[in-house]
């Protein structure tokens, strides 16, 4: 898909995506996640429900997790955006990634990037969350495969990992 759909008005935005400046003309009605996926090729953020409920499209905007399907690309003008690709490359997810891998906290994997970014946000603000806190923090990210048991275990394990 092209940046500007047929007859669609566009706007110039300036952002930083995964640490690199990106200047682009985007369609005014394009969602942030569509722009990241379709125009920048950052397909690690997934489109699940397009209602802001499932959390598969979670990305980080100015340090805060947002729903990439509920935010327009134009709203990201001037913002710094981090996707799973950038967060992974930075190494800041290493403890969580290892814990998810080791504890088999994923199956189809579609929810995993969003789940990791949300979990990382939790751990950044709370060093040793108890399981109740983890459950609550992740309750906005759907997983249809695992039943969440392994995910909670993994986040708990990552919170005590030396890699943090």
């Amino acid at each position: 898909m092209t940046a500007i759909a047929n007859d669609e008005p566009g706007l110039e935005i300036e952002t930083v995506v995964n640490g690199a400046p990106v200047r682009a003309r985007v369609a005014v009605r394009q969602s942030l996640v569509d722009w990241l996926r379709d125009d920048l090729g950052l397909t690690g953020s997934h489109v699940g429900c397009e209602h802001g409920v499932c959390g598969a499209c979670t990305v980080v905007v100015d340090g805060v997790c947002v729903r990439g399907c509920l935010m327009l690309a134009v709203q990201a003008d001037g913002a710094s955006i981090e996707t799973i690709e950038g967060a992974s490359a930075s190494g800041r997810l290493a403890a969580l990634q290892e814990a998810f891998y080791t504890r088999a906290a994923l199956q189809c994997g579609f929810c995993t990037p969003g789940m990791l970014l949300t979990a990382a946000e939790l751990l950044a603000g709370d060093d040793k969350p108890d399981r109740e806190t983890i459950r609550e923090a992740l309750s906005g990210n759907y997983c249809r495969c695992t039943g969440y048991q392994a995910i909670i275990d993994a986040v708990e394990a990552a919170s005590t990992s030396e890699k943090r």
Partner: peptide, 15 residues
């Protein structure tokens, strides 16, 4: 581990 686990945690698995 699941064969795609490393790709899933990095957002690299292709759907």
């Amino acid at each position: 581990a699941h064969d795609s686990a490393a790709k899933h945690v990095a957002g690299e698995a292709v759907y």
